[in-house]
Nucleic acid binder design. Sequence first.
DNA 1: ATAACTATTGAGATAAAATATCATTTAGGA
DNA 2: TCCTAAATGATATTTTATCTCAATAGTTAT
Lengths: 132, 132
Amino acid sequence: MKDKRQTIQKGLVWDAVTNTTNHPNAEQIYERIVEKHPSISRATVYRNLNSLVEEGKVKRVRVLGGPDHFDHTLRNHYHIQCIHCKRVDDIELFEDINLSEQNIDTSGYTLESYEIVFNGICPECKNKRAAQ
Amino acid sequence: MKDKRQTIQKGLVWDAVTNTTNHPNAEQIYERIVEKHPSISRATVYRNLNSLVEEGKVKRVRVLGGPDHFDHTLRNHYHIQCIHCKRVDDIELFEDINLSEQNIDTSGYTLESYEIVFNGICPECKNKRAAQ
DNA sequence: ATAACTATTGAGATAAAATATCATTTAGGA
DNA sequence: TCCTAAATGATATTTTATCTCAATAGTTAT
């Protein structure tokens, strides 16, 4: 009845998500790990990311029209994606919004959740474009 | 210098998006058209949907982790997706929210837009599950 | 109405993101 | 150390969408 083994690969995935200030996607995590551990498989990275999300240790940041990103910050917050370089960063609302069934006409649906994705231009891309 | 030809296929795609109360995705639009016009190609459906969106005649409704849906209602509003059957419907906020750079710490980003996707259980799926 | 030009189409290949399959490896308890 | 099943690596498959390119068909000029 003992499940969930601790593997080297799972540790590597965890490290790759944790030791970064931004929010990498699965491919970026794979690329970072494969540098020092060339035998790791992409499938293993995806599998371990899913496990970590299931275990609540990592958050999946879904964006519109692109691959999922991953975040080890568990505090509730939102994300913004750069429309140019696609990087994802945290975003804070000064006062949290309240979107509950009281202020929405859900046309018969039972509301379960909502996700907000912000889009913008990151500082680096602003500089690049200003430099041109 | 004459571009943009009106084709039968484009008309069929337009009809399929318009003559429906819900918000079909590209595959559903293809399936509807192919019944009566078996020679239409999936690529043509995708291409014409993109054209219609570019021309501002149809709105692309992006959802998290699934195919895009399409909406011929141009009025500004939000959408909710059923977590079970994946259908998409309109949703109204009683008072519109205001997410501008004034009430967000954008960590250096220039805010361009945001999208909200609601998730819930549609009336049909609620009934199905109640009946069991 | 006909010809000519080229945008659009249909069919299939390709791409991107993620999951599934399966033989092999390995973590961890006995 | 041995055993067993969980996890891995390699690859195939799935899903959503775009790309390629020869053939077709709108549109304009004649």
